[in-house]
Design a protein around this nucleic acid. Structure first.
Lengths: 156, 156
DNA sequence: TTCCGTGCAAACAATTTGCAATAGA
DNA sequence: TCTATTGCAAATTGTTTGCACGGAA
């Protein structure tokens, strides 16, 4: 029953004093429909299926609003546009440079790293707002470039 | 004797069949003068001190060239423009969201993380091309937000 | 009715590109 | 000379903003 999340978000908007519009509902819906992380452009495509009129600026303004409410998040992915998603649990993003796949990693799985960096450098990394880029198993293991994934690699 | 690096880079350009121009020398010099990581805009400021005529496009083209030669690198830092630097050893960048400080971390110090992610997700992170954002010791330890840096924190 | 949300088009920042003039080898 | 490099200005991409109109409350 994923529509729960739509209502949750709508409720949050209402609670904050915001107005509930067709556009906003459609945008939240698009965000919920795919657990995916998507660019504003991709969101627009999804929204336009049922609501062709919605302007890009409106989508930007809506995801920004969701972020202010603490229920929307965006991740930076190097070169390209930001990816947006709704989520209850903080997580880190691994983005494959080859195929674009996004892998979510639970936040606490990176605790050892976080602790290590904190001790050695005093630096406290922000684990959810920025992505780590690299190669997913498929792209790394089957890369024609020759170099295998390293020890433990070659999953095929 | 940091000028060594300038000659090294110049030599690499020459070896690749590129021509040595005043502009390129000035840009490499600006890159070497500060071990720092700097944006194209900042590089331009440095270059313009002695060579006011150099065009931004030229700087973009030159750092791109250096990257192609494997002696220049750029790091993505979320919102802002890319940071460029010359370096012999691969390293990871920690960029402070508050003060902008860049901390270099030797690549192998992240090996445990890399291995862990590789095993648990099959994902092989690219450790030098993208930065990790967070808070440096100063900004985290003295943050008025209340939450201290955690165990081992409070370096003062 | 009273503002908030929206469309539109222009502004923006970072970066890239086409083309003619210029300067390195 | 001959072609790579540069300057310039315009194009691109992702995103933000000002303003007047229309719709939520």
């Amino acid at each position: 029953m994923p529509d729960d999340r739509v209502e949750q978000a709508i409720e949050a908007i209402r609670a904050s004093g915001g107005r509930i519009t067709v556009d906003r509902r459609a945008i939240v819906q698009a965000l919920v429909d795919h657990g995916d992380h998507r660019t504003v452009e991709e969101l627009a495509q999804a929204v336009w299926v049922d609501h062709p009129g919605v302007n890009l600026a409106t989508i930007y303004r809506t995801v920004e609003l969701l972020e202010q409410l603490g229920i929307g998040f965006h991740v930076h992915v190097g070169h390209g546009p930001s990816l947006w998603h709704l989520s209850e649990h903080i997580h880190q993003h691994l983005v494959c440079d080859s195929c674009g796949t996004v892998i979510d990693v639970p936040d606490d799985s990176l605790d050892p790293l976080r602790r290590q960096l904190l001790e050695s450098t005093g630096f406290e990394i922000d684990l959810h707002h920025f992505s780590m880029v690299g190669r997913c198993a498929d792209c790394a293991g089957r890369s024609p470039d020759g170099e295998p994934a390293g020890p433990g690699g070659d999953p095929a």
